[in-house]
C-alpha cells in the first residue's frame, strides 16, 4: 500500500514487463524476468490485473475471458474448467457472458478483469487497485473473492489505497513511499502500527 504517486502501479507494470527497469533485476521463481516481454512473463505464470482494467470493450465477456487464457489455448478442456471456476466466483459474469465488456458496470468490469487475469492459471496474481472507485458492497465482494483465490492456491500480490481492506485480507504488508519500502511486516501488526494508523487508516 501507499498513497497516490508512491509508485505502486509503476512497480506492478514493471514486474509484468510493460515497463522496463533502468537498473536492478526482477526475479520470479528463481528466474530473471525483467528483460522478458509481457507475453513471456504471462506464460511463466505471472499475471497482472491492471489498474484501469484494460478490458476489450467491444468484445463479449466470454471472449475477454477466452483471450485471458491465450497462453493456454492448446489446452481447451482446462480452459473450460477455469472458466467455470471464474463463473462460480463471479456468477454475474456468467449471466452477462454475451454482453460487450464495455456495457458492464464498473464493479462488473473489475470482476471481469480479475477473471480474465485468472484464466491463464497464474502461480502469482498481481492485483493493482482492484477496489478503486467501487461501491462498498462491491468492495466487500471483491475482497472475499481475493481471499478465495488465495485459498485455491494462487499467490496474490495486492496493491491498495484502501489500507483497511488490504490489511484485513492479506498476510504481509509493505508500505511504499516515493518508490521505496518504508515499512513492512505481518498485516495484523501493521494494522496496529501507529504510523500506518495515522497515515493510511485515518485513525
Amino acid at each position: 500500500m501507499g498513497s497516490n504517486g508512491a509508485g505502486k502501479t509503476t512497480l506492478f507494470r514493471t514486474v509484468a514487463g510493460v515497463l522496463k527497469p533502468c537498473r536492478g533485476t526482477i526475479e520470479f521463481q528463481g528466474k530473471q524476468i525483467h528483460r522478458l516481454s509481457p507475453d513471456r512473463i504471462v506464460s511463466l505464470g505471472l499475471s497482472l490485473c491492471p489498474e484501469g482494467r484494460q478490458l476489450f470493450p467491444q468484445l463479449s465477456v466470454y471472449k475477454n475471458l477466452l483471450l485471458g487464457a491465450y497462453t493456454r489455448r492448446k489446452e481447451m478442456s482446462r480452459v473450460r474448467k477455469t472458466m467455470e471456476w471464474v463463473y462460480e466466483l463471479f456468477p454475474v459474469l456468467k449471466e452477462r457472458r454475451n454482453q460487450p465488456a464495455g456495457t458492464l458496470s464498473g464493479g462488473e468490469q473489475q470482476m471481469l478483469a480479475i477473471g480474465r487475469a485468472l484464466m491463464s492459471e497464474p502461480e502469482m496474481l498481481l492485483l493493482d487497485e482492484p477496489t478503486m472507485g467501487l461501491a462498498p458492497l462491491v468492495v466487500r465482494r471483491i475482497a472475499e473473492v481475493i481471499k478465495e483465490i488465495n485459498r485455491a492456491g494462487t499467490t496474490v500480490f495486492l496493491s491498495e489505497q484502501n489500507a483497511n481492506i488490504a490489511l484485513m485480507i492479506t498476510e504481509r504488508g509493505y508500505v511504499l513511499e516515493n518508490g521505496r519500502i518504508v515499512l513492512e511486516g505481518p498485516s495484523p501488526e501493521l494494522l496496529e502500527n501507529a504510523t500506518v494508523k495515522r497515515a493510511y487508516l485515518g485513525a
Binding site: 509484468a16 510493460v18 509481457p38 507475453d39 482494467r53 478490458l55 476489450f56 487475469a117 484464466m119
Partner: peptide, 9 residues
C-alpha cells in the same frame, strides 16, 4: 496493453 497482459505477442 490489455492484449499484452493476457500474453498476446
Amino acid at each position: 496493453e490489455g492484449a499484452m497482459l493476457v500474453g498476446i505477442n
